[in-house]
C-alpha cells in the first residue's frame, strides 16, 4: 500500500481495506505506524479497533476458549495442533516446574513417595473466570500417585496465598507462578482427591481487597 499524509482522508473502501489488514495484523511495522496515526481522530475506525480490542480482552478473560471441539472438524481439514494440546504442553512444563518447587515444599510425611508418573490425571478448573463451569478432567495413568491441578486465573489477578485443607487440616501451599496462558498449576498427591479443599486469596486488578475462593476436587 502506498501512503498518504495522515491528515488527508482516504476513500471509505480504501480505509476499510487498510483497517482489515490492520486488524488482521497483516501490516508491516511502518504501515501499522502510519495507519495508526491516520486513524487516531477518526471515530468510525477507532470504534472498530475498540471492538477488536474488546474481543482480544474477552478471549483472555474467557480462556481457555475451546477445550475440546464439540462438533467434528470439517472433513478434509488438515490436522492441526489444537490450542488445548499446546496448552497441555505448556502446562506439563509448568507442572514440572511446580514439582521441582513442590519437592522442596512437600516435605510432609503424608505425601506419597515415588516418582511421579509421566501422565498423571489433570483437572482443569475454570471456576475463577467468567461463568462457572464444571472442572475438566483429563484422565491419565490411574496408577500415578500425583494429580495435576490447573486453575485458570482471571486476567490481571495475583494469587496472594494458597491453602489446602486436607481432611480438615490446613496446609499452606506455595504461591504458584501464573503461566503466560493464565494458569496456576499444582502437582498434588492423588490421595488428597475427594477430601481436600483448595483456598486461594486473590487480588484482582490491583484491588487491595482479597477474594477467597474455594475449590473442591
Amino acid at each position: 500500500m502506498t501512503e498518504t499524509p495522515t491528515t488527508t482522508a482516504m476513500s471509505s473502501w480504501l480505509e476499510e481495506a487498510w483497517l482489515g489488514r490492520y486488524l488482521d495484523r497483516a501490516l508491516s511495522p511502518d504501515e501499522r505506524d502510519w495507519f495508526e496515526a491516520y486513524m487516531l481522530d477518526k471515530v468510525h475506525l477507532i470504534e472498530q479497533v475498540e471492538v477488536d480490542n474488546a474481543l482480544r480482552d474477552a478471549a483472555h478473560a474467557a480462556a481457555p476458549l475451546s477445550v475440546a471441539p464439540d462438533r467434528p472438524a470439517e472433513p478434509g481439514a488438515p490436522p492441526s495442533r489444537s490450542p488445548r494440546r499446546h496448552l497441555a504442553r505448556v502446562l506439563a512444563l509448568a507442572a514440572s516446574f511446580v514439582l521441582g518447587v513442590g519437592l522442596t515444599w512437600i516435605g510432609f510425611d503424608r505425601l506419597p513417595s515415588g516418582v511421579p508418573a509421566s501422565n498423571p490425571t489433570r483437572i482443569v478448573y475454570d471456576t475463577l473466570r467468567a461463568q462457572a463451569s464444571p472442572p475438566l478432567v483429563e484422565r491419565g495413568d490411574p496408577q500415578a500417585p500425583w494429580i495435576i491441578v490447573d486453575i485458570a486465573v482471571p486476567s490481571g489477578a495475583q494469587i496472594l496465598s494458597a491453602q489446602a485443607v486436607v481432611a480438615g487440616e490446613p496446609t499452606m501451599l506455595p504461591i504458584p507462578a501464573v503461566s503466560s496462558e493464565g494458569f496456576a498449576t499444582y502437582l498434588l498427591p492423588i490421595a488428597w482427591q475427594g477430601r481436600t479443599k483448595l483456598r486461594f486469596d486473590l487480588r484482582l486488578h490491583g484491588r487491595t481487597e482479597k477474594t477467597e475462593l474455594e475449590l473442591m476436587f
Binding site: 474488546a54 480482552d57 474477552a58 478473560a61 474467557a62 467468567a130
Partner: peptide
C-alpha cells in the same frame, strides 16, 4: 463488563 464480555465471547 469484562466478565460479561467473556461470557458473550463464550
Amino acid at each position: 463488563d469484562s466478565q460479561r464480555m467473556a461470557a458473550q465471547l463464550r
